[in-house]
């Protein structure tokens, strides 16, 4: 087990190293001259050249790479030209916002999708199976900006239940002291229930939008996986030895069906984290996705590089976590080192 974990960690480190090389290469092939952009539209050729030298862009590529890695080691991701801030500060401010949103959205989705998927499989072909199929299909076929706008229109504009879709916190509140960067958690740590509820209210609509979108893959995967397990021999044995339906479905079938579901969850999470730009835009959410897109449009390569790097590292770590979780659930994975 220890050997397997250390081997797995080795692979993880290798992937991260590969990611660093790729992000570097990727941003160098982006179109647009960074120096020209940084120098401004009125700059002369000399001024642009001066900026280029200042940024080290006149150096050979390998030297640039060495400097890049050295900077990374010091936690320096470079400066964002658009915000004028160090990239690392922008990312640490914005990543928790995206992560909080995605996590809450995913938890909401899991709470609905997994029971729905299990029910659909247990009562295959029944009304509930069809209803779950319709819900899932509808959720994934509506574009997120549309469901987001629809939700905002109903719950904010018509009903007035939700606060204005303007970021993480209403302006009358000040953000809780930064501990984790998750407002829900930070406000609890600060024992400020007003802020907690205010943050929760801001969060609920964008999170619901994400949840609706991610219902489909989770429900469908749960259903398919449960169906396969329910028709297996050991479920038949469990039924034949008189175990209660509940025990058969939860302890015997569901636990065995979990593996593919967890893989799907990991994929959905990492996809949503970086790709929910539209939701962030609709709800003016200061997330990492919109940050990266803005930087990309502005040919501002340092934030793009930082974003890709952070997302890749997160993805690698998430996969590591999923792999370890596999081992916890399935003893065969643990043994097959």
């Amino acid at each position: 087990m220890l050997l397997r974990m250390s081997r797995r960690l080795g692979i993880t480190l290798f992937s991260i190293a590969a990611v660093i090389v790729i992000t570097f290469a990727l941003t160098r092939v982006l179109p647009g001259d960074t120096a020209a952009y940084f120098a401004g539209p009125a700059a002369t050729e000399d001024a642009i050249q001066e900026v280029r030298v200042k940024l080290g862009l006149d150096r050979p590529k390998y030297e640039q790479f060495i400097r890049y890695v050295q900077d990374l080691a010091r936690g320096d991701f470079g400066q964002s030209l658009t915000t004028g801030q160090p990239v690392i500060r922008d990312i640490t401010a914005r990543l928790p916002a995206s992560a909080e949103l995605t996590l809450v959205g995913l938890i909401l989705s899991i709470l609905i999708a997994i029971p729905l998927g299990v029910l659909a499989a247990v009562k295959e072909g029944s009304m509930i199976d069809h209803v779950s199929r319709v819900i899932a299909t509808a959720g994934v076929s509506l574009p997120v900006f549309f469901t987001g706008l629809l939700l905002a229109y109903f719950f904010y504009f018509i009903l007035g239940w939700a606060p204005a879709p303007l970021g993480r916190l209403d302006i009358i509140y000040s953000a809780p002291r930064h501990v984790t960067g998750f407002y829900l958690i930070d406000s609890l740590i600060a024992r400020d229930m007003d802020v907690f509820w205010a943050a929760a209210k801001q969060l609920i609509l964008p999170a619901a939008t994400l949840a609706i979108f991610s219902l489909a893959p989770i429900t469908r995967m749960t259903r398919a996986s449960m169906l396969a397990v329910l028709s297996s021999d050991f479920v038949r044995t469990a039924k034949a030895s008189g175990l209660s339906t509940r025990k058969v479905i939860i302890t015997y079938a569901f636990r065995n069906a979990l593996l593919p579901v967890i893989t799907t969850l990991g994929m959905v999470f990492s996809f949503l984290l970086g790709a929910n730009v539209l939701v962030e835009k609709v709800f003016a959410w200061p997330g990492i996705g919109s940050y990266a897109v803005e930087a990309l449009i502005a040919s501002d390569f340092a934030p793009v590089q930082g974003f890709v790097l952070v997302m890749a590292v997160l993805y690698v770590l998430l996969n590591l976590m999923i792999d370890l979780l596999y081992g916890v659930i399935d003893p065969r994975v643990r043994m097959a080192a």
């Binding site: 297996s232 021999d233 050991f234 038949r236 044995t237 469990a238 034949a240 030895s241 008189g242 175990l243 025990k247 302890t251 015997y252 636990r255 065995n256 659930i329 399935d330 003893p331 065969r332």
Partner: peptide, 25 residues
């Protein structure tokens, strides 16, 4: 009534200790 099956390995829950499976019953 109880039943035993062909292919005994597949007839047992692969991720639960056999002792626990007997305890369940």
């Amino acid at each position: 009534m109880s039943m035993i099956f062909q292919n005994p390995r597949a007839a047992l829950n692969p991720i639960r200790k056999v002792g626990r499976q007997i305890e369940d019953v």
